[in-house]
Design a protein around this nucleic acid. Structure first.
Lengths: 210, 210
DNA sequence: TCTTTTCCTGACCGTATGGTCAAGTTGAAA
DNA sequence: TTTCAACTTGACCATACGGTCAGGAAAAGA
């Protein structure tokens, strides 16, 4: 699966600069929004001349699209936590833990995604209509099966999924608000554990799977 | 409390144009973000020449600030639903209903607020540190009292509040995603009722107040 | 009526932005 | 070494943006 043809150093340079730019872009897009972000600022954060960005990414939109795709793929991967599970408590608990972990480690990606969806998903509408729709249908069916088997309360699978997304992503998207309400300090390790446990216990009890 | 001095028509014109501009601004800021919104587009949506906007609102920031303040005040008002309540089920249930109603009726305001907070709250940081912090402390104390009285499970009041905000606002901020997953159609009246009931039942059961 | 204040708006300005380009440098292949 | 493609970058350009302003229209007051 490795697409390294031959030239070793060339590929290394390309890979390194692309990830460097993508990291800078994620940060700047998250902090300023698509419209507020400038290629010049992204370049400065990445430590490269602006013209060099355009060598790797032709347009601002193209760079932005890659950033959004990145977080989406990370989330899709985390969703697999739900699949191997036997019980709702196990599957949904693991999914909550995975998503809380992502909220902590990739808050910028989550913000860029939120911003994109809030503005009508101009760039990733096709993802919503294909990958996300299929994924959602599959998990809703899994949850419905658990309900039919009497392992959890008969709640709406759709709205449970929305609640899972909303609560976990809130800790990334609204991290600034949470930090302010936490005395201006970021959550500590212990506080993140408490947050995760709180979300887990409320939701698992809420769906009758505790 | 009415600050009408004398000139009737003049005040009417001013009031009318200000709300016209604020509505247009809310829509455009929600759809494009602060950086992506242009005064020209807001003017077009409002049906006024751009120079007229600057007559009522000196700068883009000033206009934006007013939009953000509006939604915040609406939310504060809704929070009173929680106060008169005797039981947790009653108080939190009413708060969820009020916030879901706002998500439905003011999705743009909610999006502008979310965007503002995501970008580090450059404009309304003082609100977070004063009004919101005080409000949060008060409600957290109320919830703690309920817990101490054995009326609900001993969950973290802070994280319960975050869950309430996250779940209810999700229906506004991610309305586009929800709509896409709903076959491209906005939620109907019945679906909004179902959403509200789902959120209420999951959370109330989740905190042991059902 | 005449005067004053508020309101309205087309034309304009300086700046910042996304993107281009031509001239170079560096690494790989022959 | 020579050749060629991949990479780098300062300088540049057209455009679009937030904001200004002067001069006029409409309303209020005298």
């Amino acid at each position: 699966m490795s697409d390294d043809p031959r030239p070793g150093k060339r590929n290394a340079i390309r890979a390194q600069n692309e990830t460097l730019i993508l990291q800078a872009a994620e940060k700047v897009f998250a902090e300023a929004g698509f419209g507020g972000a400038t290629m010049q600022l992204i370049a400065d954060v990445a430590g490269l001349p602006k013209a060099n960005l355009h060598y790797y990414f032709a347009t601002k939109e193209e760079l932005y699209r890659r950033v959004v795709q990145n977080i989406f793929e990370i989330w899709l991967q985390a969703a697999e936590a739900m699949d191997g599970a036997e019980t709702p408590a196990e599957g949904i608990g693991a999914y909550i833990e995975a998503k809380m972990d992502i909220s902590r480690r990739h808050p910028n990606g989550s913000k860029v995604w939120a911003s994109e969806v809030m503005h009508g998903a101009p760039v990733i509408q096709d993802y919503l209509e294909t990958t996300l729709r299929d994924w959602t249908a599959g998990r809703a069916a899994l949850i419905q099966r658990w309900i039919d088997e009497g392992r959890m309360a008969p709640i709406s699978p759709q709205h449970l999924l929305y609640m899972l997304w909303a609560t976990t992503q809130h800790y990334a998207d609204f991290s600034h608000q949470i930090e302010t309400l936490n005395g201006g300090k970021p959550l500590t390790d212990a506080q993140w554990r408490e947050a995760t446990e709180s979300v887990k216990s409320m939701i698992l009890r809420g769906i009758g799977a505790a």
